[in-house]
Amino acid sequence: MSAAVSPAPRKGLSFRQPSVIPGFGLTLGFTISYFSLIILIPLIALAIRSAGLGPEGFWKAATDARVLGALRVSFVTALIAAGINVVFGTLIAWVLVRYRFPGRRIFDAIIDLPFALPTAVAGIALTAIYAPSGAIGAIFAPIGWRIAYTPVGIVIAMIFIGLPFVVRTIQPILEEVSNEVEEASATLGASRFQTITKVILPSLTPAILTGFALAFARGVGEYGSIIFIAGNIPFVSEIAPLLIYIRLQEFNYVGASVIATVMLLISFAMLFAINLIQAWSRRRYGYGH
C-alpha cells in the first residue's frame, strides 16, 4: 500500500502515464499471468506440437485429402450460413430498431437465445426438427429433400448460432444513423427506396461486414450444435472441429494439432480483418465517436 500512497512516479513503469489510483501493478500483473496460464501457454503448446513436424511434414498433414475435405465443408457451409444471416440479421435489426409493434422487446430478447442455449441442446433440438420424421423434415421428406444428416443441416445449425452476432453488431450502428440524414436524403429528392439503398445500407456496410465475419468465424469453429445434425460423413458433412476430435480419439495428437493450427491461423486472420474493418471505418466515417 505504501507504494500506492506515494504519488512519486516510478521509473520502472515508464510505459504508463502516472496516476494516483493504486493497484496498477497488482491488477495488470494478475491479468497477464492469468492470461498466460489459461490462454497463451496452452496455445503455445499447440504451436510447438505442430511445429515439431517441420514445414514439409506440416504441409503434408494439412493437405491430407480428408483434412482438406473437412476444412472445405466447414468453410463453405459457414460462408453460406453467414451470408443468409447477413440478409435476415440486417432485416431483423432494422425491424427491431425502426418499428414499434407489440412484443418487440420479447422478440429482441429472444435474439440472444443462441448465446444462452447450450450448443448440444441446440444440436439435438435442431436434429429433432429437421430429421425426416421431424416437424420441418417431414415437410421436405416426401419430395426427397433431406436436411438433417446433410450439409444443409450444418448450414441450419450455423445460422442458429451465428444470427445474434449479425443482429447485435448492426443494431447499435443502425440506432446511430440519425434521422436527419434520412430527411436530408428525402429533401434532395431521393425516394424512400433510394434512401435505404444509397444512404442507410452503405453506412451500415462496416457493421454488416463485421457481423458477417463474426458469424462466419463462429460457424467455422462450431461443434456442439452441428455434430448431431451433420451426419458426419467424411468429405461430405464432416466438419473440421469434428475431425480434430476424431484424431484425438485415435491418439493422433499431431494430426489434431495440424488441423487446429490451420483453423486458428484462419480465425486470427479473420479477427485481424475485423479489426481492420473497424479501424478503417472509424478513420473514414468517424463511427464509434
Binding site: I41, G221, Y223, P241, Y253, L264
Partner: peptide
Amino acid sequence: LPFSVSPVISGLVYVLL
C-alpha cells in the same frame, strides 16, 4: 481471443499440455 478459437481447439490445447 478465446471467442475466435473453436471450442474443440480450446479443449485440445489442454490435451496437448
